[in-house]
Design a protein around this nucleic acid. Structure first.
Lengths: 260, 260
DNA sequence: GTGCGGCCTCCCGTCGCGTGAGGGTCAAGT
DNA sequence: ACTTGACCCTCACGCGACGGGAGGCCGCAC
C-alpha cells in the first residue's frame, strides 16, 4: 500500500531549495565549490540529494547564518568541537569589529547631519573636539603674535568658511604628515634625506592649500617661526623628542633645494 | 627669489595620494569612473591635480568615510543641502540595519558557543525559546495521545539527539512550509492545486527527514491526526482561519496522488 | 505534439579597489 | 652620454557569494 522507496527517495534541487530556504543557484554554487559531495546524478544529469546530503546542507546553512566564509566551512563540518569553537570565537570577534566600524560610521553621519557639517562653518566647539582642548587659547596667542602678518590674515579669511568636514580632513592630512616626518626620523635618515624632503614638500603644499599662499621662501620663514614658537615644539616633541627640530631642518632644506 | 608658480603648481598622483591618504590606485579608479574631472595631463600623460581638484577629492574622501557608494557621490558633490541630507539619512539607516544584522549574528554565535549548540542536544529551555512557551505542555499532551504509536516512538528516539541548531533549522523549514501553504490558499488555488501539492510533499519530506519515516500512506494518517487534534487547528488557524483544513486537504490529495 | 515547468551548463555582473605585468618619464648621479 | 631608481602610465585579473539571463534538454500532462 505505502510506497516503500519514498522516504529515502533523493530530491532534485528545487525541492531541496524549498526545504532549506536557499536558492537553486546557491546549491549550484556549493556544488561547483565541492562543498556538497552530493550523492549522485540522475540519468538526465539532474543533481540528486539524499536526506544525508540535505542534513549536511543544513549544517552548511547554519554556519552560513553565522556568516562563516564558504571556504572555511568544509574544514568545520567534520571538525572536532575545539576547532569549531575557535573558529566561531574568531568570527565573532571579526563581526564585532565590523559592527563597531559601522556604528562609528553611523556616528560620523549623525554628526554631519546634526551640525550641517558640509555646508556651514565649524564652531569653536567643533574645533576643540577635533584638535583637543586648548585650541582657543592657542588661537588667541597666535593671533597676538602674528595677527598683523599678511599670511595670518589670509589664513583667517580662508579658514573662516571651513566646515567641520574640512577641519577633519585637515587634521587627517596633518597627522599623516607628522607620521611621515616621524618615520623619516626614526628610520635614521637625515632631515635633508628624500623622505624628509617629500614630507616637507607635502607640508608646504598642505599649508598652501589650506591656510595661506606659501612658496618656498615663505616656507623658510615658517621654519623660523616654528623654531621661535614654543607651542610648535611642544606639539611636535610632546610625543617624540627632537621631532620639531628635525621638521624645521627639513623645511629649510626643502626650501633651499627649491630656491637655491 | 620665491618661485611664483609653486603655490598653484598642479600635483601628480603620488603627492595627492600622500596628501589625502588614499592610494594611487584609488585615484586611478576615481579617474576611470569619471568621479574626478581632473584639470589635465602633462605632456607625458601624467595626471595633474590642481588644488581645486584636491579640494574636490577631499569631499569625495569625506563621503567615502561615511561609506557612501561611489556611484552616489557625483550626484552629491554638487547637490543642494536637502538632497545631501536625505542621502545621508538613507545611508545611515542602511548602516544601522547592517550593524543590527551583524550584532544579531554575534548573538547567534554567542548562543552557539555558550550552549555547545552544534554538539549537545538542546534543552527544554532552548525549545521553549525557539517554539514559544507552552511547548512543554504540548509535548506532554502529545505523548499522552500518541505515545504508543510507532511513529511517536521513532520521533522521540531521533529528536532526543537534536541540537539547538537542528531545532532552529526545523523551525525555519516549518515556517517556510506554512508560508507556502498560506500563499497557495490566499492565491485562491484549491488544496489539490500544484502549489499546495508541492507544499504538502515538502511537508511530508520534512516530517520524514526530521521526525519519523513518513510515506504517503502515513501522510494520510497524519492528516486525520491533525484534523482530530485541536492543537494543530489552533496553531495553523491562529493567524489565518481555514488554513488547517486547507493543509489537511492538501495532505490527503498529495497522498492520493502518490498512492492512487 | 505541444506546452510548461524544472533542470542543465556557461558566463557576465556586482563593489572598490589590490596587485601585478609590461613599459614610458624624469631628475640625479657617474 | 649612460644608468640608476623613483615616479608615472595602461591594461587586466582577482576577490566573495552568489544573482540573473541565455540557450537548451527532460518529463509529465493535456
Amino acid at each position: 500500500m505505502g510506497d516503500m522507496n519514498a522516504p529515502t527517495a533523493p530530491m532534485a534541487v528545487g525541492e531541496v531549495a524549498r526545504l532549506t530556504g536557499v536558492t537553486v543557484r546557491t546549491l549550484h554554487h556549493y556544488d561547483a565549490l565541492g562543498l556538497l559531495r552530493l550523492s549522485g546524478r540522475s540519468d538526465a544529469g539532474y543533481r540528486l540529494y539524499s536526506s544525508a546530503d540535505v542534513a549536511r546542507l543544513g549544517r552548511v546553512v547554519a554556519l552560513r547564518r553565522m556568516r562563516i566564509a564558504l571556504r572555511d566551512i568544509p574544514g568545520l563540518l567534520d571538525a572536532d568541537p575545539a576547532t569549531l569553537r575557535a573558529a566561531l570565537l574568531r568570527r565573532r570577534d571579526e563581526l564585532r569589529a565590523e559592527a563597531r566600524g559601522m556604528e562609528a560610521t553611523v556616528r560620523l553621519i549623525t554628526r554631519a547631519l546634526e551640525e550641517d557639517d558640509m555646508t556651514t562653518p565649524a564652531t569653536r566647539e567643533d574645533l576643540a573636539e577635533i584638535f583637543g582642548d586648548g585650541f582657543d587659547d592657542a588661537q588667541a596667542e597666535a593671533a597676538a603674535r602674528w595677527g598683523r602678518t599678511r599670511a595670518w590674515q589670509e589664513s583667517q579669511r580662508r579658514t573662516a568658511a571651513y566646515t567641520r568636514a574640512d577641519w577633519e580632513a585637515i587634521k587627517a592630512e596633518a597627522d599623516a604628515n607628522v607620521a611621515a616626518f616621524l618615520d623619516a626620523m626614526t628610520a635614521g635618515t637625515p632631515p635633508e634625506g628624500p623622505a624628509a624632503m617629500r614630507a616637507a614638500e607635502d607640508h608646504r603644499a598642505h599649508v598652501d592649500r589650506r591656510f595661506f599662499a606659501c612658496d618656498h621662501a615663505l616656507q623658510r620663514n615658517l621654519a623660523d617661526l616654528y623654531d621661535s614658537d614654543p607651542r610648535y615644539a611642544v606639539a611636535y616633541d610632546g610625543t617624540h623628542p627632537g621631532l620639531s627640530a628635525y621638521v624645521t631642518a627639513a623645511m629649510r632644506a626643502n626650501a633651499a633645494r627649491a630656491t637655491g
